[in-house]
Simulated scan of single mutants.
Amino acid sequence: MNEDRVKGQAKDVKGSAKETIGKAIGDKETERSGQADQVEGKVQKGVGKVKDALRDDS
């Protein structure tokens, strides 16, 4: 498994937690920051998947 996939998953989980906390305490900034972290994590996981696919095709 590519390092980008692992780091992306961690960012996604962190973002989900931040979003949940932001919603719970009514902090829209924290909630939006969590959503942004999740998007960043998903993109990074996608990059890792592409790298893995390219490595497997070689």
Rank of each mutant, 00 (worst) to 15 (best):
residue 54 L to A: 05
residue 18 K to S: 04
residue 9 Q to V: 02
residue 23 K to S: 01
residue 34 G to W: 03
residue 49 K to F: 11
residue 22 G to Y: 02
residue 58 S to W: 12
residue 7 K to N: 09
residue 3 E to N: 07
residue 18 K to C: 05
residue 56 D to A: 14
residue 2 N to W: 05
residue 29 E to S: 14
residue 32 R to D: 14
residue 43 V to I: 14
residue 57 D to R: 13
residue 1 M to K: 09
residue 26 G to V: 08
residue 21 I to R: 08
residue 13 V to P: 00
residue 1 M to T: 11
residue 37 D to S: 11
residue 55 R to S: 15
residue 13 V to H: 00
residue 11 K to S: 01
residue 24 A to R: 07
residue 12 D to I: 08
residue 23 K to F: 03
residue 1 M to L: 10
residue 25 I to A: 11
residue 3 E to K: 13
residue 17 A to F: 09
residue 44 Q to C: 04
residue 1 M to R: 10
residue 15 G to F: 01
residue 8 G to A: 02
residue 2 N to L: 10
residue 29 E to K: 15
residue 28 K to G: 14
residue 24 A to E: 01
residue 11 K to F: 00
residue 19 E to R: 03
residue 24 A to K: 05
residue 46 G to E: 03
residue 1 M to C: 08
residue 47 V to P: 06
residue 32 R to W: 10
residue 47 V to W: 06
residue 5 R to W: 07
residue 36 A to W: 10
residue 44 Q to I: 04
residue 52 D to C: 06
residue 45 K to W: 04
residue 35 Q to Y: 11
residue 5 R to Q: 14
residue 22 G to K: 01
residue 10 A to K: 03
residue 26 G to Y: 05
residue 46 G to R: 05
residue 58 S to R: 13
residue 53 A to D: 05
residue 10 A to G: 05
residue 48 G to N: 02
residue 44 Q to V: 02
residue 36 A to I: 11
residue 22 G to Q: 02
residue 29 E to I: 15
residue 23 K to A: 03
residue 7 K to Q: 11
residue 32 R to C: 09
residue 5 R to T: 14
residue 34 G to E: 01
residue 18 K to G: 02
residue 4 D to F: 09
residue 27 D to W: 05
residue 14 K to V: 06
residue 25 I to L: 13
residue 35 Q to W: 09
residue 25 I to E: 06
residue 57 D to Y: 13
residue 48 G to Y: 00
residue 22 G to M: 06
residue 42 K to R: 13
residue 8 G to K: 00
